Computed example of a mutant assay.
Amino acid sequence: MLEAKLEDAGILKKLIDAIKELVTDANFECSEEGITLQAMDNSHVALVAVKLVQSGFKKYRCDRPMPLGVNVGSLTKVLRCAKDDDTCTLRAADEADVLNLTYEPKNSDRVAAYDLKLMDIDSETLGIPKTSYEARVVLSSAEFLRIVRDLSQLGDSVRIEVSKEGVRFASDGEAANGSVLLKGQGPIGKVEQEKKEKKDDDEEGEDEDADGDKKKEKKTKVKKEKDGDEDVEMDDDEAADEDGEEEKEDDEEDDDDDEGSKKRKKKARLSKSSPKASKKAKTASSSKSKKGKSKADDDDDDKDAVLIQMNSHVSLTFSLKYLVNFSKSSNLTRKVELYMSNDVPLLVSYTFGEGYVRYYLAPKIGDD
Rank of each mutant, 00 (worst) to 15 (best):
T76G: 12
V48G: 13
K223H: 10
I121D: 05
V50N: 01
Y350W: 04
K196D: 14
K190N: 13
I121K: 07
K59C: 05
S108D: 15
L79T: 01
Y60M: 02
D241T: 08
N331H: 04
K214D: 08
F28R: 03
G212P: 03
A176Q: 04
S141P: 07
K199C: 06
L37R: 09
S123H: 06
R91N: 08
V180S: 05
V306C: 10
D201H: 12
T87K: 06
D85A: 08
Q38I: 08
E253Y: 08
D201T: 12
D231E: 11
E3S: 05
E194G: 11
R136H: 07
S330A: 15
K216N: 11
P187F: 10
G127K: 02
D150R: 10
R80F: 09
L151S: 06
K265C: 00
I16N: 06
E32W: 06
K198Q: 11
K335N: 13
G205L: 11
E337I: 15
A4N: 03
A49G: 09
K321W: 00
S31L: 05
K266Y: 00
K83H: 13
K14F: 08
Q309H: 09
Q153T: 08
Q193R: 12
I35V: 11
D84Y: 12
S330R: 09
S327W: 03
E217K: 15
V314K: 00
S341Q: 06
K198L: 12
K190R: 14
S274Q: 01
V148R: 08
F318C: 07
K226G: 02
L270D: 02
S289F: 02
K267L: 00
K59R: 08
A277D: 00
D85S: 10
Y133W: 07
D172W: 06
S179M: 10
N342K: 09
V111M: 05
